[in-house]
Computed example of a mutant assay.
Amino acid sequence: MAAVRRTADHGLRLPPLAVDRMRGELPEVAEHVVAAIIDEVPSYTDAFSGPMGETIRNAVQLALGGFLSLASGKRGAEVSTPTAPAVEGAYQLGRGEARSGRTTEALLAAYRIGARVSWREMSTTAVRNGLDAETLVAFAELVFAYIDELSAASVAGHTDELATTGRVRQRRLERIAHHLLTGSPVETVQAAVERAGWEPPRTLTAVIVPESQVRPVLASVSPATIAATEAPDLDESVLLLVPDAHGHRRTALLRTLGTRGCTAGPARPWLEVRASYDRALRARAAGLELDTEAHLVPLVLEADPAARADLRAQLLAPLADLRPGTAEKLTDTLRSWLLHQGRREDVAADLFVHAQTVRYRMGQLRELYGDRLDDPDTVLALTVALG
């Protein structure tokens, strides 16, 4: 442990007789400590049954024994101070308590009770064996400094265990994301899900989030959300796979994403989330943010840019021999005519020209295209090409 040892070089040396008497009472004191903790800290009511209970009892006795060795001035042959095993034991106890699901608040409450009971019983024995008032004060200071040292070690162990557990779980969740996004067999995905202890949802929604916004977004979405920091084809952003954000819940998700620069793909059955991610990627590449479902037309039109460019060139071939300015005006007129279903007044308003100009230009276009402007397949192709 790297913490400053307040018990080091304390200078207190208790009379050997008092130490021997207190050491002889250690098992009884330890049981009194355990009983008080069970009585006063609700989360420890059932904690002392089974292997964990034995571990805690041993930790209490080890701590008390280490303290008496410290107070008597003894040093072990293999450790720098007699408290080292107790500090290590406290650290491991903290890790065990984290695994058991108990909080640091409960752990520190147990230490406070242990300090109170231990001090009451050991000080009584010390006074009974001739400890003077001045030494008793120093004894009290050492007791509580020692408890502070142990409790700090336990809190460090608790914190480290949670961090380790969190890292391990995060790695396992990222393996699920990896398999989902790379097309691994269903059996492989299911095995990763079982290892992570993750409950599969009905749907997953892929959300691309800027790195700076990941923490606030995660704080507002489902705790079962998977954060994939190394998603394929993604730089300077993090992919979140949000469970069951379909139907009316999508509105809440989009409200959370707000103006954070995120892009949310559609909800898809959880094993098919790659499709949601692909759409979010395409939208992001096209400069479209937030809700991909609000941009379906441009996404469809830009799904294959090269094919669309070829289609456009093919369909505008009749205009190829015209002057560029004329070709551009006729192209704009044809596009507006298609989108407004031939309503001349609407086309004129859209292009800011007179209706007669629209009539003239459409006459030119009909000369160039002939009957093809009345063919449904040609109209569809032109709408896609010019949409």
Rank of each mutant, 00 (worst) to 15 (best):
T103E: 10
P266M: 06
L108P: 02
L382F: 06
E211K: 13
P266W: 02
P185H: 14
L290T: 07
D233I: 01
G65C: 08
T7L: 02
A224S: 15
T326N: 07
G65H: 10
L234W: 04
E289T: 15
Y277M: 05
T357A: 12
P232N: 08
V300A: 14
G66H: 01
L296Y: 03
V214Q: 10
V117C: 08
A2S: 15
E28D: 14
T263P: 01
V33G: 01
L380P: 00
A138Y: 04
A252T: 14
V300S: 14
D132Q: 04
A381N: 04
L181Q: 00
L64F: 05
P51H: 09
A98Q: 03
I56D: 04
D310N: 11
A153P: 04
R279H: 06
A309R: 14
E367F: 07
D235R: 12
V347F: 00
A219V: 00
V34I: 15
I176H: 00
S184I: 02
P185R: 12
P16F: 11
L271N: 03
G24Q: 15
L254N: 00
L240H: 01
R282S: 05
L142I: 00
N129A: 10
E194Q: 12
G363F: 03
V19C: 01
Q92A: 12
D20F: 05
P85Y: 02
L70S: 04
R260S: 09
V209P: 03
R175W: 00
Y146S: 02
P269L: 03
R284G: 07
D291W: 07
E134T: 12
G24I: 13
L382T: 06
A327M: 06
G101E: 06
L150C: 12
A355H: 09
R175I: 11
E40R: 14
E187C: 08
I147C: 05
L368N: 09
L218S: 06
P82Y: 01
K74T: 09
A126L: 03
T165G: 07
D350T: 15
R344A: 11
P305N: 11
G247A: 04
R268A: 06
V60C: 03
G265L: 04
R372T: 11
E105C: 09
T135N: 09
P243A: 10
F352W: 11
T256W: 00
V60N: 02
L180V: 05
E328K: 10
T104V: 11
L64T: 05
G261S: 07
R23N: 08
T165W: 05
E199V: 13
R95N: 08
R279I: 09
E31G: 04
T135S: 11
E105Q: 13
P318I: 05
D9Q: 12
T256L: 08
